[in-house]
């Protein structure tokens, strides 16, 4: 499966254009990380990609077919969306919350079946919080709830999963967990992934392709190693950094150390 953005343009009005003629694509088995300073429009971009907010011009193509021509349910069966965690209003249990992700596979008049319960528990296992299935959602920490939302997106068995800053609110270990999980599902299950992230290190680690956005600057799209450089980080984030690489268990790792404002 491949998602393509073709010359997408979005703004809240003609004076406030946020994205001007942006084009990129993601396929199964790829992780696209999106970076940029606060307020640049990363979340808005995700919403435009998924059609939650319409493009001003340009379009999203799914396997060459314009998203606008696709049936709502058909689209969402293949795409999973994990927004930023805002907490839960109602005290649904974790499992009930994850089961909601099965909606696109269920008839309007159905309630979840055994299969649905199966898949939901699997999803909880994947994110590592299966033991919490009975806990009410409004008793969870921000990070735990974030994991529930990821599990919910996974429960619909999407081909591409889109996440908006999933590592926020997570402690060190859980951040590792999420990153590891994303890597795993992409490698093992061949899922595609689009992730907004504030952490260039995670972006590098997840590898594949990146999109960098900056104020009054052209967007950068390409392999992560080419996009995420000291020069680009300085230009797009306004922070001078030092990147240090090292080997660990036959794998390349890179650390980015912020030095001073540039």
């Amino acid at each position: 499966m491949k998602i393509e953005i073709c010359h997408g343009k979005f703004g809240y009005s003609n004076e406030r254009i946020i994205h001007e003629d942006i084009s990129f694509d993601v396929s199964n088995g790829q992780i696209l990380t999106i970076l940029g300073p606060n307020g640049i429009g990363k979340t808005t971009l995700l919403k435009c990609i998924t059609g939650l907010v319409p493009w001003m011009s340009g379009e999203t193509l799914v396997d060459g077919v314009s998203m606008k021509k696709m049936k709502h349910t058909a689209f969402w069966k293949r795409i999973g969306y994990v927004p930023q965690s805002t907490g839960s209003r109602f005290a649904y249990s974790v499992l009930d919350m994850v089961l909601l992700g099965r909606a696109s596979h269920m008839h309007v008049y159905s309630t979840p079946s055994s299969t649905d319960y199966d898949i939901a528990m699997e999803a909880l296992e994947q994110v590592g919080i299966a033991h919490m299935y009975k806990k009410p959602c409004n008793n969870l920490s921000g990070g735990e709830f974030q994991l529930v939302m990821v599990a919910r997106a996974l429960a619909s068995k999407p081909e591409i999963i889109i996440l908006d800053e999933p590592e926020s609110h997570l402690d060190f270990k859980n951040q590792m967990l999420i990153i590891g999980m994303l890597e795993k599902i992409v490698r093992d299950q061949g899922l595609g992934c689009i992730v907004n992230t504030h952490y260039p290190e995670h972006a590098l680690r997840l590898g594949d392709i990146s999109l960098m956005l900056g104020p009054n600057l052209p967007y950068l799209f390409g392999p992560s190693k080419d996009v995420i450089t000291e020069e680009n980080l300085s230009k797009y984030f306004g922070v001078k950094v030092k990147m240090l690489s090292f080997d660990y268990k036959d794998k390349d790792y890179c650390s980015i150390i912020p030095l001073e404002l540039s």
């Binding site: 939650l52 969402w76 795409i79 999973g80 927004p83 909601l100 909606a103 997106a153 619909s156």
Partner: peptide, 8 residues
Amino acid sequence: DEAKAMGV
């Protein structure tokens, strides 16, 4: 947005 993302 969450609701829409469930395909509803």
